[in-house]
C-alpha cells in the first residue's frame, strides 16, 4: 500500500511596480499558484489581466494586476515552463474537401508524320548545321536539370515551316483528341534539340515560366538515323493530380518511345521528362534529334496573322472547326 507524498509549501514574494512586495505561502499543488505563474509567463500574449491569490488560509483574497508584477521570488524554486499558452484560434475557414482527381496525361502519337525525303532532309539539316547547336539551359535552374544541345531559334529556318505547316493540318484533330477547344494561334515556336550519350531533361512544365505563357500544345517530332543508333531517350508524360484548383505531378506516367518520323503532341501543362539517352558511339550524327513545336494560344483573335508557309491564317478559329 502506498500513500501520496504531502505537498510542499512554497514561499512567494511578489514584487510589484513601485517596489511593493506581497509575501504569501501556497501549497505547491494549489491552483492559484499555477494560475499566477501562467499569467505572469503569458502576460505579453494575454495582454495582462487579474490574478486572485488566497491569503490567511483563504479567509482573505488579494487581487493583483499581473501587468504590475515585476518579479516573483519562490522558495523552493518554481520551474517556469516558457512555452506560450495555446491561444484561441479563429474559426477555420471551410475547407474544400473535394477529393483529388487523377488526370491522365493525354497525348497523340502520329507516325509517318513527314514524307520519306522530308524526314531524311531534317536529319541532313541537323548534321549540316551542327555548329548552331548550343548547350541547353533552364532559366533559374542548375545544370543538373537538363543536358542536351539545342537550336533555340530553329523557327527561323524553312525546315521549321515544313513541320509547322503540316502540323497545322493536324491541329484541329490534335486539339480535339487532347480535349482542348480549338483556339486562335498566336505563334508556332520551334526548337531543335540533339540528345547524345547521357543527355536528359528532368521533369518540367513547358508553360511554367512567365515568358512561356501562351504555350498551349507541345508537339515533339523525332528524327534520327536508322537503324536507331541509341537507346533510351523516351518521353515520359506524367499524370497529374488536381485538387482545389491546383495541379501537381502524379507518380504515374506514360512513356513514349522515340521512333523516327514520329510526332507526339500533348498539352503544355503536362509534366514531362526526357529520359536519359544512351549513345555508345557518342557521335553527334547518332544523336536523337527532336523538333519541339509549341502552339501558342492567342487571347484575342489575330485574323491577319499567317503561319507555316505563309498562307494559313490560324489567328482565328473558323466556324467549321468550332
Amino acid at each position: 500500500m502506498s500513500s501520496q507524498p504531502e505537498a510542499r509549501i512554497v514561499d512567494l514574494h511578489i514584487r510589484t511596480i513601485g517596489g511593493h512586495v506581497l509575501s504569501l505561502q501556497l501549497p505547491e499543488d494549489a491552483a492559484p499558484l499555477r494560475e499566477l505563474f501562467a499569467a505572469f509567463a503569458n502576460r505579453q500574449q494575454a495582454g495582462g489581466g487579474l490574478v486572485q491569490l488566497p491569503l490567511d488560509g483563504g479567509r482573505t483574497a488579494c487581487t493583483i494586476a499581473i501587468d504590475n508584477v515585476v518579479s516573483i521570488t519562490s522558495t523552493p524554486p518554481v520551474l517556469l515552463d516558457l512555452q506560450p499558452q495555446p491561444q484561441p484560434q479563429p474559426a477555420p475557414e471551410p475547407v474544400d474537401v473535394e477529393p483529388p482527381t487523377l488526370r491522365k496525361a493525354e497525348h497523340v502519337v502520329i507516325d509517318d508524320f513527314l514524307g520519306v525525303d522530308e524526314n531524311r532532309d531534317m536529319l541532313a539539316f541537323a548534321l549540316r548545321d551542327r555548329d548552331r547547336f548550343k548547350a541547353g539551359t533552364v532559366e533559374g535552374k542548375a545544370h543538373e536539370a537538363r543536358r542536351n544541345s539545342v537550336i533555340l531559334d530553329f523557327g527561323r529556318f524553312e525546315h521549321a515551316n515544313l513541320i509547322a505547316n503540316r502540323l497545322l493540318i493536324w491541329f484541329p484533330l490534335i486539339a480535339r483528341s487532347l480535349g482542348e477547344p480549338l483556339f486562335p494561334l498566336k505563334q508556332v515556336e520551334a526548337q531543335l534539340t540533339a540528345s547524345n550519350d547521357g543527355d536528359f531533361y528532368g521533369s518540367h512544365l513547358d508553360n511554367g515560366a512567365d515568358e512561356s505563357d501562351g504555350r498551349a500544345i507541345a508537339c515533339v517530332y523525332y528524327f534520327f538515323d536508322e537503324p536507331k543508333p541509341f537507346t533510351g531517350g523516351a518521353l515520359r508524360l506524367y499524370d497529374s493530380i488536381e485538387r482545389g484548383g491546383q495541379r501537381s505531378r502524379a507518380e504515374s506516367f506514360h512513356e513514349i518511345e522515340p521512333v523516327n518520323n514520329r510526332l507526339v503532341a500533348f498539352r503544355s501543362r503536362t509534366y514531362h521528362e526526357l529520359m536519359p539517352t544512351r549513345c555508345p558511339s557518342k557521335k553527334f550524327e547518332d544523336s536523337r534529334f527532336a523538333v519541339t513545336s509549341w502552339l501558342h494560344r492567342s487571347a484575342t483573335p489575330l485574323p491577319d496573322a499567317t503561319f507555316g508557309w505563309g498562307h494559313f491564317r490560324c489567328g482565328k478559329v473558323a466556324p467549321a472547326l468550332t
Binding site: P172, H311, F312, C314, A318, A320, L321
Partner: peptide
Amino acid sequence: TRSWNPHPYTE
C-alpha cells in the same frame, strides 16, 4: 467529319 470547304485557314 468536319467540313474543310471552305478551307478553314484560307477560306
